[in-house]
Computed example of a mutant assay.
Amino acid sequence: MKYIKKNHEPKKFSDWKALENDDWKPNWDDNFQKPEKSIVHDSLLQEQGYICCYCGMRIARATSHIEHLKPRTTYPNLALDYTNLIASCQGESEEPPPVPVHCGHQKKYWYDKQLMVSPLEVNCTDFFKYPASGEIKPTDDPTKQAAAETTIEKLALNINKLQNMRKVAIDAALLGIEDLTDAEIQQLAEGYNQLDSNGQYTPFCAAIIYILKNYF
């Protein structure tokens, strides 16, 4: 999981919501459609560097959906609150979502303030550790373990599919690394924290950064 720094919501989204009057109210289920929904979706993808808010795999509009961090069933007042919207893998049009289900579709209506590790928390990466096998595990910090374990379980972040994808990404990042100095390896790790020229993060960059910073 990588920290997501929220930007201001798109102006066209703000303008659309500002049209509310006695006869019409913006509503997620009834009238939140194109172009506003597509504009919001694209904005979320851009601010996340085109990786899933939870697992970190590469996503695009067709392969992701707009996720409510706090479910709109429980928090209806946040249904159109941009600060509560993020983009998760597995597309909105894939209903039911393809097996194995993970991330936002697996999470569904679950949210627990104490046990949900949010990608909107600056320190969210501190809750997890990543061995080279591709697993995601709770940190050794006992104060963070319960939240990490619950989040991994509720979002199905440790299924074989995601483990295998992480391992492939980690293995690719480690090619030729034995020829680098410690300083160069740490510089490489910092590079994975940056967007590339296309405004994208490397898929599973959180796992790659962890490996580079903790094993070399």
Score class of each variant (00 low, 15 high):
residue 170 I to Y: 13
residue 179 D to T: 04
residue 141 D to Q: 05
residue 46 Q to G: 01
residue 60 A to K: 05
residue 149 E to G: 09
residue 116 M to H: 03
residue 133 S to V: 11
residue 144 K to C: 04
residue 160 N to M: 07
residue 207 A to M: 02
residue 4 I to G: 00
residue 132 A to Q: 14
residue 124 C to R: 03
residue 141 D to F: 01
residue 194 Q to V: 02
residue 113 K to Q: 11
residue 59 I to N: 00
residue 206 A to R: 03
residue 47 E to P: 06
residue 168 V to E: 09
residue 101 V to K: 10
residue 84 N to K: 10
residue 123 N to E: 07
residue 2 K to D: 06
residue 123 N to C: 04
residue 51 I to N: 00
residue 183 A to C: 04
residue 69 L to S: 04
residue 89 C to Q: 08
residue 10 P to A: 06
residue 3 Y to S: 12
residue 19 L to Y: 05
residue 73 T to H: 10
residue 180 L to M: 12
residue 48 Q to A: 01
residue 141 D to W: 03
residue 104 G to V: 00
residue 181 T to E: 15
residue 64 S to R: 13
residue 216 F to K: 08
residue 78 L to M: 11
residue 137 K to F: 09
residue 60 A to N: 08
residue 117 V to N: 00
residue 100 P to N: 07
residue 124 C to V: 15
residue 4 I to D: 00
residue 112 D to G: 03
residue 104 G to F: 03
residue 32 F to A: 08
residue 187 Q to L: 10
residue 55 C to R: 04
residue 169 A to F: 02
residue 186 Q to P: 05
residue 29 D to T: 09
residue 36 E to K: 01
residue 144 K to L: 13
residue 172 A to I: 02
residue 191 G to L: 12
residue 121 E to D: 11
residue 68 H to G: 10
residue 35 P to Q: 08
residue 36 E to F: 03
residue 88 S to N: 10
residue 28 W to A: 12
residue 143 T to M: 05
residue 131 P to D: 08
residue 39 I to E: 15
residue 138 P to Q: 09
residue 104 G to N: 10
residue 132 A to G: 09
residue 69 L to I: 12
residue 150 T to I: 12
residue 153 E to V: 03
residue 120 L to R: 04
residue 110 W to C: 15
residue 186 Q to D: 11
residue 135 E to H: 15
residue 190 E to R: 13
residue 43 S to P: 07
residue 70 K to P: 11
residue 107 K to P: 14
residue 97 P to R: 05
residue 180 L to W: 01
residue 72 R to K: 15
residue 125 T to C: 08
residue 125 T to S: 12
residue 187 Q to W: 07
residue 93 S to C: 03
residue 60 A to T: 15
residue 51 I to M: 00
residue 50 Y to F: 12
residue 6 K to P: 07
residue 156 A to I: 03
residue 143 T to P: 04
residue 113 K to D: 15
residue 135 E to K: 15
residue 82 Y to Q: 07
residue 42 D to F: 01
residue 176 G to F: 00
residue 77 N to I: 03
residue 43 S to Y: 04
residue 198 N to P: 06
residue 40 V to A: 02
residue 202 T to F: 12
residue 209 I to Q: 15
residue 64 S to P: 15
residue 111 Y to C: 14
residue 55 C to W: 05
residue 107 K to C: 14
residue 62 A to C: 00
residue 211 I to D: 14
residue 102 H to L: 09
